[in-house]
């Protein structure tokens, strides 16, 4: 009689999650994470600012006011202000093309888009020297004929920087646009919207977060670029020396404090970039 008619009552398990691990494993994992975090992320960050301000704020300002440093800052800003808009146009066009149209060679284009990530920046720089060098480059005759100087000058540095940062904006935009699909664009078309109107009023606002982050990221990378720019610029102090290049020069000349002072600028930029990213993620969460 009994057993057949009575139901067994199961007690719920004491832990509230099926993936709970014993306390010592959790502790170990957290400890490893903290060690890595402090050693590889926090310490270097603190070192930069510590070294930069070691001899006081006035020395810090002096390091930044140094004419060569000013030239480097101005040069870096000009390169970024040219190559970021170039990449913005390229990134928007590529992402639009890849997500909204079907054509032959699309997957090839997507693969090649990652080339700048795959190629070492130094090799990229060398490549442009070989192409545009006025003495032995492939296009040396044409460049000499028109008296155009690309290598060891601003245009070459812009080209190298643009190449290295090429995928950033497109790579941010493509997944965002793909996630959105084409339905809203179709809706705009049935309502009589032109291509431009659709792009600016429907497509762009939907991906503005990704676009903005792409720009910020691209800018940070453009300002921090070392390898490719180092090769094409020739690193002439006060002429073709960007912030990263000048930091290296200072460091080589044992001007550690000045090197770290300039480094702190780039580090602040990096922190600002991350901050922007968090802001965008936060505003997304609020919307959805």
């Amino acid at each position: 009689m009994e057993g057949n008619t009575r139901f067994r009552i199961f007690r719920p398990p004491k832990t509230n999650s099926a993936t709970n691990e014993p306390i010592y494993i959790r502790f170990l994992l957290i400890l490893i994470m903290f060690i890595f975090f402090i050693l590889f992320l926090l310490m270097p960050l603190i070192t930069v600012f510590y070294e930069a301000f070691k001899h006081g704020f006035s020395m810090y300002l002096n390091a930044l006011k140094d004419p060569f440093a000013c030239d480097a800052i101005i040069l870096t800003l000009s390169i970024a202000s040219i190559s970021v808009p170039l990449n913005l146009i390229f990134g928007l066009a590529t992402a639009w093309l890849i997500t909204k149209f079907d054509f032959y060679g699309k997957s090839l284009l997507v693969t090649f888009l990652d080339l700048p990530f795959a190629v070492s920046p130094v090799i990229a720089g060398l490549l442009f020297v070989l192409l545009f060098s006025p003495t032995h480059g492939w296009f040396s005759d044409i460049l000499r004929f028109f008296d155009i100087r690309l290598i060891f000058a601003l245009p070459g540095m812009v080209i190298a920087t643009t190449f290295v940062t090429l995928p950033f904006i497109a790579r941010e935009l493509i997944p965002a646009m793909q996630a959105r699909g084409n339905q809203e664009e179709y809706a705009a078309i049935t309502l009589g919207a032109s291509g431009w109107k659709t792009f600016f009023n429907v497509t762009l606002p939907n991906v503005k977060g990704a676009l903005f982050y792409g720009i910020v990221l691209c800018n940070a990378r453009a300002m921090g670029e070392f390898g490719a720019v180092s090769v094409v610029s020739g690193n002439i102090k006060g002429k073709t020396s960007t912030i990263p290049l000048y930091i290296e020069t200072l460091y080589m000349e044992y001007k550690t404090q000045a090197a770290f002072a300039l480094s702190s600028l780039l580090t602040l930029l990096a922190l600002f970039t991350l901050f922007i990213k968090k802001c965008i993620e936060f505003s997304y969460k609020k919307r959805i």
């Binding site: 339905q183 809203e184 179709y186 809706a187 705009a188 078309i189 049935t190 309502l191 009589g192 919207a193 032109s194 009023n201 429907v202």
Partner: peptide
């Protein structure tokens, strides 16, 4: 579509 003077309602509405 834009010149046919039609109203189209999409399956998942496709609201902006």
């Amino acid at each position: 579509a834009g010149k046919r003077r039609i109203g189209f309602v999409f399956q998942h509405y496709a609201l902006f």
